[in-house]
Amino acid sequence: MNTHESMSHMIVRRFIKHRLAVVFTIIFLVLSLIALLAPWIAPYDPNAISASFSAPPTNLHWLGTDQIGRDVLSRLIYGMRISLLVGICATLISITIGVILGLVAGYFGGIIDSIIMRFTDMVMSFPYILLVLVAAAIFEPGLVSIILILGFVDWPGITRMVRGNVLSLRESDFVKSARIAGLPRHQILFGEILPNTVAPILIYATNVLAMSMLDEAALSFLGMGVTQPTASLGNMLNAAQSMNVLTDKPWLWIPAGSLIIILVVSINFIGDALRDAFDPNSAQ
C-alpha cells in the first residue's frame, strides 16, 4: 500500500471505484461531445423544413419529423446543446453569487453576516418554482432570461453551505497562523479558505446543474423558457401537450424526455461519486 499517494490520485482512484458513476461519466462526456459538435454531427439543419410533416421514423429521418417538417434527431442534438448551455451558465452564475456571499458572510461575521443570511432566509422562504415562474412571467421569455432567472434564484443553498464551511475553517490552525503571519484578508479568503471549500462546492454544483436542467425543461415545456424556433429538450416536449401528439406521435416527445433523464441521472451519479471520492471519512 502506497502511503504517499497524492490527493488527486486518491480522489481519482476512489471515483473509479464507483462503477456506475464511471459508466455515466462516459455517457455524459459522449453526449456533451455530440452537443459540442452538433453542426457536424446533426444530419439536418435543425430549423430546415422538409416536405414531410409529423412523419414517423424512416431511413431519411431516424426519429421522424415534427409538425412543421423539421428533423427530430437534429433538433434533439441542438436542443441538448441549448439545455446543457442553459444548465451550465445558470450553475456558474448561482455558484459565483453563492460562493461570494457565503465567503463574505462567514469570514467577516457580525452585522454583514446577519444581513446576508437574513436576506438568504427571505429568498429561501419563497417556494423556488414559484419564484422562477413569476420571474419568467415578468421578463420576456428567451435563452438569456432563462439563464439569468435560474442563475439568480438558485444561490441561497450554496451561500449557506459555503458560510458554514468558512465558519469552521476560520477557527482552524492554518487560517489562524495565516492571520498571525499578517496575510491580507483577501489573500486569506481566496488563497487559504476558498481552496479548502472547493470539494463541497463542486459536489453542490452538480446538484445545481441537475436542478437547472430539470427547471429549464419544465419552464420550456410550459412555454415560458427557451422559445421557438430554437430547440431545447424542454420545448420539444411542449408538443406533447396536444392530445394528438401524446397519443399517436410518440417519436415527438419520448426521445427528448428520455434524453433529459439520461443527462440528469448522469450528473447526479457524477455528483454522488465525487461525494464519495472527496469524503475524508470514507473507508478507503
Partner: peptide, 18 residues
C-alpha cells in the same frame, strides 16, 4: 432513487397518462 429524482415530473406525468 437516483433515477426517480432525475425524471422531470411533467415527463413522468405524460408517460403515466400515455
Amino acid at each position: 432513487s437516483f433515477v426517480a429524482s432525475s425524471i422531470p415530473s411533467f415527463f413522468l406525468a405524460l408517460l403515466l397518462i400515455y
